[in-house]
């Protein structure tokens, strides 16, 4: 009698274990798909949103650079409207006048380039001048370094090219098929030589023509070093015209920061970190609040909040993009001295 339980229990356990061993032998390896490893680089937004210090009178350079880089596209377009060449010579005259001025203004690129252009203008009036007109009218001061280099080299290759004319087109064909189409047209019509084919030619000629290689080399550093030579577009203190490129919040913060005089005596900027909220109307006036949301937990808390609220009221009409009014109808902003100064 007593053994019934033991036997039944043993049999049951053996059965369960056998079932377990058979039916769940291995829980199947997890399918791990190979994940592609993506390198991640952390970039601070402030690199983009902080305006570079510069002169407000300067024009934006980036667009010019982009335009010059996109040259291959304009090239194809320009050859087609070739008949328009007529107006260009008219423009060429001011350019010629401008050319002598430009080298004076920019001594750095000039030394290398100058020797070439001075003799050239006389033999090659039209080809040298025509490429310039199109780009120059737009960016007068900044573009000069780049374009001076370009037009000047062009004349030299052409002077030499006329003997060499046949070999040069062949070389570019390998690397740049598109310019090839433009090049044949250029020889008869001469006018619409864009900058890039010229650069490419230079690069291709680098092997054969050392002088051109020097010029091409000189062109690149001038492009990269533009900011050193010319003040780039920006506000005087790097903050004023922030709204142009900064996010709206950064812009607003910059405006408020100008009016903010943080309380004296706080040992540490983090002690003054305040979060306040306020409402703005369409004209940028404060119509609600400001109201503190977080007080810093120290003895400067009340003073910091007071100063922040004062700053918000004092700078009151804020210039913000009107079409995004919904975004800044109600603003919540962190006053953190370590961010704002």
């Amino acid at each position: 009698m007593k053994n019934v339980g033991l036997v039944a229990s043993s049999v049951g356990h053996v059965a369960v274990l056998a079932w377990a061993l058979i039916s769940l032998p291995s829980p199947g390896a997890h399918d791990v798909s190979d994940l592609e490893i993506l390198p991640i680089e952390l970039v601070s937004v402030s690199d983009v949103t902080d305006v570079v210090k510069g002169q407000s009178t300067a024009k934006v350079q980036k667009k010019v650079q982009e335009a010059t880089r996109k040259a291959p596209q304009p090239e194809e377009k320009k050859p087609e409207p070739a008949p328009k060449v007529a107006p260009k010579p008219k423009q060429a005259e001011p350019q010629k006048q401008a050319e002598p001025e430009q080298p004076k203004a920019k001594p750095e690129p000039a030394p290398k380039v100058e020797p070439a252009p001075k003799p050239e203008p006389s033999p090659k009036p039209e080809p040298a001048a025509k490429p310039e007109p199109a780009p120059k009218p737009e960016p007068t001061p900044k573009v000069e370094p780049e374009k001076k280099v370009e037009p000047q080299p062009e004349p030299t290759p052409k002077a030499e090219e006329k003997p060499q004319s046949e070999p040069t087109p062949e070389e570019p064909k390998e690397a740049a098929p598109k310019p090839v189409a433009a090049l044949p047209k250029i020889k008869p019509k001469a006018p619409p030589k864009p900058q890039k084919p010229a650069e490419e030619k230079r690069k291709f000629d680098v092997d054969s023509l050392k002088a051109l290689a020097n010029q091409a080399d000189s062109a690149q550093p001038t492009q990269s070093g533009e900011q050193d030579q010319d003040a780039s577009f920006g506000s005087r203190n790097g903050r004023e015209a922030a709204a142009m490129t900064q996010s709206e919040l950064d812009a607003l913060r910059a405006q408020i920061a100008q009016c903010w005089s943080p309380p004296v005596g706080a040992a540490d900027a983090s002690q003054l970190a305040v979060k306040i909220e306020f409402g703005l109307d369409q004209q940028g006036n404060v119509n609600w609040g400001p109201q503190p949301i977080e007080y810093p937990a120290n003895q400067f808390g009340v003073a910091a909040v007071e100063s922040a609220m004062r700053a918000v009221r004092r700078c009151a009409p804020y210039t913000l993009p009107a079409d995004k009014y919904d975004a800044w109808r109600r603003v919540r902003i962190n006053f953190d001295p370590s961010d704002m100064f």
């Binding site: 339980g5 033991l6 036997v7 229990s9 043993s10 049951g12 356990h13």
Partner: peptide, 17 residues
């Protein structure tokens, strides 16, 4: 633990009966 389980089940069956 396994033998404890076997024995406790034996007792359970035994007592239930």
């Amino acid at each position: 633990l396994l033998s404890a389980s076997v024995w406790s089940w034996a007792i359970i069956i035994d007592k239930s009966l």
